[in-house]
Simulated assay, not measured.
Amino acid sequence: MPIINLSTTIQAPPAVCFDLSRSVDLHQVSTAQTEEKAIKGVVAGLMELGDSVTWEAKHLCVRQKLSSHITAFERPYFFADEMLTGAFKSFRHEHRFEAIAGEATRMTDVFQFTSPLGILGKLADILFLKQYMTHLLLERNRVIKEVAESGKWQEVLAIEKRVVL
Rank of each mutant, 00 (worst) to 15 (best):
D19S: 12
E103M: 12
I126C: 11
A12L: 03
I126A: 15
L127W: 10
F88T: 09
E155I: 10
F73E: 00
Q33S: 15
H59C: 13
A32I: 10
F18N: 08
T9M: 13
E98V: 11
I126P: 04
K130A: 08
F111E: 08
E74P: 01
A101T: 10
G121L: 06
V143Y: 09
S52L: 08
E94V: 08
V164G: 05
S67W: 03
F73S: 06
T34S: 13
L117P: 02
E48Q: 14
T108P: 04
T114D: 15
W55I: 07
Q112F: 11
K58Y: 01
Q28P: 06
V24W: 01
R75Q: 13
A44G: 07
V143K: 02
R106V: 11
M1N: 12
A32P: 05
T85W: 02
V156K: 02
M107P: 06
D125H: 09
L137Y: 02
G102M: 04
S150M: 04
L26H: 09
S52G: 09
G102R: 04
H27Y: 13
H93T: 00
S67T: 14
S23E: 00
F78K: 10
V16G: 01
S21C: 11
I100T: 06
L138R: 15
T54F: 07
T71Y: 04
L123Y: 08
T34D: 12
L6C: 05
K37D: 00
L137A: 08
F79G: 03
E56T: 13
G41F: 04
I100Q: 00
S30Q: 01
A124S: 08
K58M: 09
F111A: 08
K40C: 07
L20D: 03
E36F: 07
M83K: 02
T54L: 01
W55H: 00
D19P: 06
T34R: 13
E94T: 06
F88A: 03
E74A: 12
L20T: 02
E139G: 15
Q154M: 10
G41V: 02
I126K: 15
W55L: 11
L123K: 05
E149K: 01
A124N: 08
I3P: 05
L117F: 15
G86F: 02
I100G: 04
T114S: 15
V110M: 14
T34A: 14
E139V: 15
I70T: 04
P76H: 03
A38C: 02
Q131G: 13
H93W: 02
S67E: 09
V53M: 07
F79Y: 09
D125C: 05
G102V: 06
M83D: 00
D19W: 07
R140M: 00
T54I: 07
L6H: 07
E74H: 12
M83C: 06
P13A: 14
V110P: 08
F128K: 06
G151A: 03
Q11S: 15
W55C: 03
A80E: 14
L136E: 12
L49Y: 11
E74C: 05
T134V: 10
S68N: 11
Q64H: 09
Y132P: 09
Q33F: 13
Q64I: 14
A15R: 10
E155V: 11
H27F: 15
L136A: 11
P2M: 06
L138I: 11
C17Y: 00
E98L: 12
V156I: 09
M83N: 00
A32M: 08
